[in-house]
Amino acid sequence: MTTAADTTHGPRPAPLATLRQLYVIVLRLQLTPLRVLAIAALGAVAVLLGGLTRRDDDPLQATAEMVAGYGITVAVPLCVLWLATSSLGDLVDDGLLVYLWLKPVARWQLPAAAVLAVATVVGSLVVVPLVVAPLVAGTSELALDVAVSALLATLAYAGLFVALGLWLRRALWWGLAYLLVWENGIARASEGASRLSVGGYARSVLARLADVELADAGRSLGLGVSVLVAVAIGGLVAATIRYRRAEIA
């Protein structure tokens, strides 16, 4: 070990190296056997449903409705909610944030790492099965449209729920309330409220890309993509602000 007088402190660590390290840490914390099994099971359901839609008279329409109704409305938001609210929330609850906060790393990196880690898990275990579903259904032309819309939904929900996990206690329950009461209740019943529904924009992206008619999917492609990206970035910014101001126990 060198003496303190010898110690030189050059430039800050490379941002990509620190982001990668934070991503690996958050990802490893998220990958518990229970979570992996439960989320993979929800993903597997999409493949089974894809097999069923194959027998439909209009498999393309049926598969798009299945992806919109099950994948984008249920599986993706629920899985993202579970992982995202715990990704940084667990670090806070377990007293581990102290090891990450006292580092010369830009404050936006930890929330960004959390969003990326959530997207990795949900992308692998839910979005990939959703993409496989059209292949099983014999509507392979839908696969890319499903991938784009489901990934955008994943990123938007991840930004939103990572921020929620830092801003609110019992974020999981607040998130569930948002999904059940707002997105699947009020937003579906009211045109005005539907403008504040992440799921509605994701379904719209799928409908426009696949050129099919879907319920609660009346936005344009450009607006849908823009809003989903804006929600992801907005969530990241909100999470960063909260993290920067946080008092670490």
Partner: peptide, 28 residues
Amino acid sequence: IGLAPQQESVFEPLTAHAFVRATAVLHG
């Protein structure tokens, strides 16, 4: 600054070397 906090919690999925190495990476 280097801090060893009082709380006992540690990153459970990591080995000691992985944990300390991660700290080193984050410090550059």
